[in-house]
Computed example of a mutant assay.
Amino acid sequence: MSRFDDAAPNTLFKSLEKAEVGEALPATATLLDAAAFNEAGLIPAIAQQHDSGEVLMMAWMNREALEETLRTGQVCYYSRSRQKLWRKGETSGQQQRLKSAALDCDGDTVLIKVDQTGPACHTGRRSCFYIQLDAEQAAVTSEPMIDPKALYGA
């Protein structure tokens, strides 16, 4: 039981701004009830390599994907194009093992710290963020680690 359990879902994250480090918080299910999933029932999830801090990718999770990730330790997303759960690495073998998960201060984004096996990007690159921008031009900053045809057999 925490002092935040009686907070209305629409004010829960605001009330957590005053929480002390180590203070008891509401159950995960209560926090997910208050999380800001969009009109499609999705929340953005940023995957970051747990030991290096490298940002690997951004994908979407629905509540089921997030709960499965927390329960199993194997990262699961929601594929908008396929309209179904997508267990990272199920076709490529390039899995993400969960190290930690955190909601941001507004409850509208999830940060997933992972241990990534091989490339995270469908292009075969370690990170999906390989197109660097400046005010004038863009540049590709990394080579594929693995040919995508070898990952997906296409």
Rank of each mutant, 00 (worst) to 15 (best):
T72M: 06
K88G: 08
R63C: 05
Y78C: 00
M61Y: 00
V75D: 00
Y77M: 09
E67K: 11
S81M: 08
E68G: 01
Q74E: 15
G89S: 03
R71M: 07
S81D: 10
G73P: 10
G73C: 11
R71K: 15
T69P: 06
R80T: 06
M61C: 04
L85F: 09
S81G: 07
Y78P: 02
K88R: 11
C76W: 09
R80F: 06
R80Y: 02
V75T: 15
K84T: 14
R63V: 06
A65H: 08
Y78K: 00
E68P: 00
C76T: 15
Y77W: 09
L66E: 02
G89L: 00
E67V: 13
A65L: 08
R87D: 08
Q74T: 11
E64Y: 01
K88H: 14
G73L: 10
S79E: 05
R80P: 08
V75K: 07
E67G: 06
Q83R: 14
L66P: 02
R71F: 07
C76N: 12
A65V: 10
Y77R: 07
T72N: 05
E64K: 14
E68Y: 01
R87Q: 12
C76F: 02
N62K: 08
C76P: 01
R80H: 05
Y78I: 03
A65S: 14
K84F: 05
W60T: 03
L70F: 02
W86P: 00
Y77G: 09
R82F: 04
L66K: 01
K88F: 09
G73I: 08
L66Y: 00
S79R: 11
R82Y: 10
K88S: 12
R71I: 03
R71N: 11
R71D: 13
R80I: 05
Y78T: 01
Q83N: 13
Y78E: 03
T72I: 14
V75G: 08
R80Q: 13
M61K: 00
V75C: 12
G73W: 12
A65N: 14
G89R: 00
S81Q: 08
K84H: 12
G89E: 03
L66V: 02
E68A: 11
G73V: 13
S79F: 12
R87T: 10
Q74F: 04
A65K: 05
W60F: 14
E67H: 11
E64W: 02
N62V: 04
T72P: 08
A65D: 15
S79I: 14
T69L: 11
Q83K: 13
Q83L: 07
W86Y: 06
